[in-house]
Design a binder for these strands. Structure first.
Lengths: 261, 261
DNA sequence: CGTAGTCTTGATTTCCGTCAATCGGGGTGG
DNA sequence: CCACCCCGATTGACGGAAATCAAGACTACG
């Protein structure tokens, strides 16, 4: 029940300054809900006061260990996953800059899932007590975090639908639509390309499929001129085609202003 | 984009009194995180000021419609689900008394899922603006709701693991373990019985399986003396056997006090 | 140039979905 | 009080989608 950080995380290099942080991912995320004032900008900056760099393939969080912090992802991508005793693995979601990447795994006595760095990443650890303090002192931020958690939960539910009730073709098409439309990685227009360091094995583990099957399905997408995956680059060739293939409704997760904020 | 309530909900019968509500499910849920003071008890009571009765099989929330409220479930059970255009259905979770049953579906411009009453239920509608107000005025309640949302998200993730990477036997065993250990319906000891109005079709839709297969798997559970399902009654005969069958770790979701609250 | 990681492809097996029919119990109405 | 009916449980036969196993190719990188 020890607090784990050193075994998996390289010694923290304090890079943050405490200065207002108007360009970081978390600011961008909260700004989608309300306009932050100076004080709020300031506190977001302070949350980034100390940062850690973690290299690719390292686990930032390990299932079963105890943590006293959550991590704000400043740059890079992570995957959150869980492994069963016999090695089967399920990827739960991907973290992009601005996400509290260890939410909700680190909020239990022991972490309920692991977080692995898909690229070199920079994170800002935030003690859990500071979260409660944030809720008390900056309720607008707390409310927005709550709404943000609701969004995450809804995305998780949608993935549950995909894994539970869609076939392989639909799942793979859905995978990219979720990435683009829901996680706001790139845009959803024909010809758009975006960088995402995902392997076919990762796609398979996210969708509950086997790697060979994902490979065959990706070929289908390529042949039908819907999407090509080239190394770390993905190119959307036919957004509507993808949407049809996945029977996906991109308006499903339209944000709205938080009532009363 | 209209506000829907009358088509699916019977005319509200004001049953709440605004009195402190020390026995309701929401109080119980929050009390797991911290001890409510009088003022907090009072506000929880006020949230239950007006209630609605909804009959079995009715949809409390319908996917695609717009809502301005969430519902606190006072009594009864509900299921939250989503249907694909061709009729395939995925059950996302079950709501028990004390849950905000329309979270997170109702927090978008249009509801992202439907909520159906498995029994006759009583709900207390809470306007969304009131949630923001609650966060600002009663930060401890807000924080606890946030933690509670984290728990829901973790449960959803665990179900994703089940549906994505477990076979039918493991899934069905997991189904009951989640119900008991995670949702706190009944207890997890040999010989314990609990009431839960679930049909085999509902189990199938929650686990991404077909009804006949669920039936066969339930028979297996019965024959192995692990669990019997008799109408609305479930009897746990061998908790450890179930845990083994599902390769499930019941300590996984242990609560801990919220740091700093 | 060698190695490790990833992608690709094929052959075989199996789990589970689908379809269809039957059964049983509890509620309802005549 | 009885007959009907609907919903849900049960069972069987069949087919198919995807897992698994295995081997080889490609690429990046040291």
């Amino acid at each position: 029940m020890d607090i784990v950080s050193s075994p998996t995380v390289s010694p923290g290099v304090a890079q943050g300054t405490g200065d207002p942080c108007r360009t970081c991912g978390l600011t961008a995320k909260l700004s989608r809900y309300f306009e932050l004032n100076d004080e709020e900008h300031d506190i977001i900056g302070r949350l980034h006061a100390s940062t850690q760099r973690v290299e690719r393939r390292r686990d930032l969080v390990r299932e079963g260990h105890a943590y006293a912090t959550v991590y704000i992802l400043c740059s890079g991508f992570v995957s959150r996953y869980r492994v069963l005793p016999d090695g089967r693995r399920q990827v739960l979601n991907f973290g992009v800059p601005g996400d509290l990447v260890s939410f909700p795994s680190c909020m239990f006595a022991r972490a309920t899932a692991s977080v692995c760095c898909m690229t070199e990443v920079v994170v800002a650890p935030v003690p859990l007590e500071q979260l409660s303090w944030l809720f008390a002192r900056f309720p607008r931020i707390g409310t927005a975090l709550f709404w943000s958690a609701a969004r995450e939960a809804a995305i998780c539910a949608e993935r549950l639908v995909a894994v539970g009730r869609r076939d392989a073709d639909e799942r793979v098409a859905y995978f990219f639509l979720e990435l683009i439309a829901l996680r706001c990685v790139g845009t959803l227009r024909d010809g758009d390309r975006f960088t995402f360091p995902v392997t076919q094995e990762l796609i398979a583990d996210a969708l509950g499929l086997g790697t060979p099957h994902v490979n065959r399905t990706l070929r289908k997408l390529r042949q039908r001129r819907l999407l090509v995956l080239d190394g770390q680059e993905a190119v959307v060739q036919d957004a509507d085609g993808l949407i049809t293939m996945a029977s996906f409704d991109p308006t499903h997760f339209e944000m709205r202003p938080i009532p009363g904020l």
